[in-house]
C-alpha cells in the first residue's frame, strides 16, 4: 500500500548550509503525524519543500506514489496539500470572511465571464456556505466582518487553519499552530484537530508544544540538524535516548 505522502532522501542546501539532509519518512492516510526537532532542525524547510515553496536540492516528495517535488505551490495545493505558515500569514487588510473565501478558491474557481453577467450566483453562494462553515468549525463564526489583522493572536492562528480547511484538503500541513495560544485555546484546538482527522483529513504537524504533540499524534518523526533522528509512537519518542539527548542539547524539555 502506498502512503499518502512520502519523502525520499529529501535535501535542501542553502549555499554551504544543509538545512535538510537526506530525510525520509512516510505519512499514512488518516493519521496525525508529528514532525518535531529542536529550533533550526529544518522542519519549516521540510514543509516548504513538500508544499512546493522550495524546490528540493535533492530527493523526492511523493503524493500517493506520484512525484510532486518541484511543482509550484499552487499546483501542489490543487493536488490536495494545503499548508499554514509558521508566522501568522493572513490577508490582514481583508475581512475574516474574505480570508476564508480565498480558501475556497480551488473548489469554486472564479469565472470572470459568469461574474460579469451574474451567472455565478450558485457558485458564490456555495463558496460563502463553505467559507462560513470553515469559520464556524474553528470557532470564528461571530467574527466574519472583523479585519483579519485586528484579531487576537490565537484567533489569527485559527483563521490561518480555517483558510486552509476551506479548500477541504486531503493533507494539511500545520506549522506550529499552537504558538500564541493559551492552554484553554490549545486544548480546544486539539479537539478540533481530532475532529478534522476523523472527517478524513490527514494532518502533518510541526509543533514545539510536546504535550500537544504527544496527545495528538499517531506517529512522530524527530529530526535534528536537518537529519532524521527517530520515528515512532508518542511513548517511543518520549523515551528515545537520541531524542532526549537532542532536546537537552538544544536546551529544551521533553514533557
Amino acid at each position: 500500500m502506498t502512503s499518502l505522502l512520502e519523502v525520499q532522501n529529501l535535501t535542501m542546501r542553502f549555499g554551504g548550509l544543509t538545512a535538510v539532509d537526506g530525510l525520509n519518512f512516510k505519512v499514512e492516510k488518516g493519521h496525525i503525524h508529528g514532525l518535531i526537532g529542536p529550533n533550526g532542525a529544518g522542519k519549516t524547510t521540510t514543509f516548504n519543500m513538500i508544499s512546493g515553496f522550495y524546490t528540493p536540492s535533492d530527493g523526492k516528495v511523493l503524493l500517493n506514489g506520484e512525484e510532486i517535488s518541484g511543482l509550484p505551490m499552487h499546483h501542489v495545493a490543487n493536488r490536495g496539500i494545503v499548508r499554514t505558515f509558521q508566522h501568522s500569514t493572513l490577508f490582514g487588510e481583508l475581512s475574516v470572511l474574505d480570508n476564508a473565501l480565498v480558501g475556497t478558491h480551488m473548489t469554486f474557481r472564479p469565472n470572470i465571464f459568469a461574474a460579469i453577467l451574474g451567472l455565478d450566483g450558485a457558485a458564490r453562494r456555495n463558496a460563502l456556505d463553505r467559507a462560513r462553515s470553515s469559520l464556524e468549525f474553528f470557532g470564528l463564526g461571530g467574527l466574519e466582518d472583523e479585519l483579519a489583522g485586528d484579531l487576537s493572536h490565537g484567533h489569527q492562528r485559527a483563521l490561518g487553519m480555517a483558510v486552509a480547511y476551506a479548500s477541504r484538503p486531503d493533507l494539511i500541513l500545520l506549522d506550529e499552530p499552537f504558538t500564541g495560544m493559551n492552554p484553554e485555546e490549545t486544548r480546544q484546538m486539539m479537539g478540533l484537530m481530532r475532529r478534522l482527522c476523523a472527517e478524513g483529513t490527514t494532518i502533518l504537524l510541526v509543533e514545539h508544544d510536546m504535550q500537544a504533540i504527544m496527545g495528538l499524534c499517531d506517529n512522530i518523526t524527530c529530526m535534528s540538524f536537518g537529519k532524521f533522528l527517530a520515528e515512532g509512537g508518542p511513548s517511543e519518542i518520549r523515551n528515545h535516548p537520541d531524542v532526549i539527548e537532542a532536546y537537552l542539547g538544544g536546551a529544551r524539555h521533553v514533557a
Binding site: M73, A77, E93, A115, G118
Partner: peptide, 27 residues
Amino acid sequence: RIEKSPVGLTFHAVHWQDKLAQASGVN
C-alpha cells in the same frame, strides 16, 4: 462587476499576501 466578484477578491489576495494566495491554490 469584476472588482466585486470572486475574481476581484483574488486580485486583492494576490496583492496583500501572495504566499498565502498561492498556498490556497491561486496561480
